[in-house]
Nucleic acid binder design. Structure first.
Lengths: 192, 192
DNA sequence: TCGATTGTCTAGCAGTGCTAGGATCGGATC
DNA sequence: GATCCGATCCTAGCACTGCTAGACAATCGA
């Protein structure tokens, strides 16, 4: 039995290695550089090994996305719980979100820009994604205002953050004013 | 002279044909299906002909994006000019934006999601892109509120719309509530 | 009519995601 | 301890991608 367990453990280790390496490579050189050949070379196995863990490249991206979602949830909760009062909480949340997107562009891409084959806003949505949304909801629900469904409000606020994150990173919005954009967003959207 | 002119005209025609075909193919089967081979086959020329018009696939995407930006500017101005009063104007504008993104997903991708090699928010930004932003600014500037720079407000509003458009289309947000999201966005962000 | 230029195509390169089939190694059985 | 079998891994290859060199043909000016 212990032999089988060891093998399972090693397999799980290798799977984590694949995901971590894909993420690292993507952050270093962009997702375009994450080819199955390069990835296989970095983990010091041949290409087909990747396909014994994942159905294909898409699933590897999906795995990075899930990892990222879990981290983002942690970051969002840490930021909002460290702030006092609704306004400070929402501001901290928004900053933390944009900060995460800026610091982990490849992971953010895996989550929202690329096709990781993940389901969203459905029952079979993976837990980490639901939880990341829940982390947003926890702080945003309290500033939705009367008569506005917290989930709907969270969706709109999230969309705004997502728009700011992607447009800024794509060079569509000049970066220096990010702080003022966040302030404006919080001031107007949130009912304090 | 007239011979040269005819040739130039034919060349320009063919260039338009390339862009239109790329766009059509992308709307029909997605950008992944737009390969240089398929595109060449559809226009009934060989691959290298594409490269006598464009530096590469990226530039073709860029051309589709510019065409789309021009159309979007027209659509936005039409929608907002048909509405009376600031509130109705902004609502119409937002709806028109999301409508354009929904009806022309491939074009929208070319503009904001894919790399078309276009410069944004800079001096050498192509005119159609500047103009599309200007179309937003025209209607949004008047509801920015006191002390808020119209361009900054437009950026934030645009980002929110962009977020809604992309997240909805990627299946991240359930579509039925789009109308309510737009209402919420206009009610809160715009100073009426 | 001839040479030069322009235009287009065939063929090919290096790279992609993915997979079939063979080799090899470990553990279980006699 | 020898043998077998199954799991594990790799080599080699497929069909495809974007892109380009070089051959070829059509067209133009002299």
């Amino acid at each position: 039995m212990s032999v089988q367990e060891r093998k399972q453990r090693e397999r799980a280790d290798r799977e984590r290695l694949i995901v971590a390496t894909a993420r690292e490579l993507a952050e270093q050189q962009g997702w375009d550089a994450v080819t199955t050949r390069r990835l296989a070379e970095r983990i010091e196995y041949s290409q087909p090994v990747l396909y014994s863990h994942f159905r294909g490249k898409r699933e590897i991206i999906g795995a990075v996305a899930l990892e990222g979602a879990a981290e983002m949830a942690v970051a969002l909760r840490a930021a909002s719980s460290a702030a006092d009062g609704p306004r400070a909480r929402v501001t901290a949340l928004a900053r933390a979100y944009l900060d995460f997107a800026e610091r982990n562009p490849a992971v953010y891409d895996a989550m929202f820009q690329l096709d990781g084959g993940l389901a969203f806003a459905r029952e079979d949505t993976p837990e980490p994604l639901k939880d990341a949304f829940a982390a947003l909801l926890e702080s945003l629900g309290e500033v939705a205002g009367d008569g506005v469904h917290p989930a709907l409000f969270t969706e709109v606020f999230w969309a705004a953050l997502h728009g700011l994150a992607t447009l800024t990173r794509a060079g569509r919005l000049p970066p220096p004013d990010t702080g003022r954009r966040v302030e404006l967003l919080v001031d107007r959207l949130a009912v304090l």
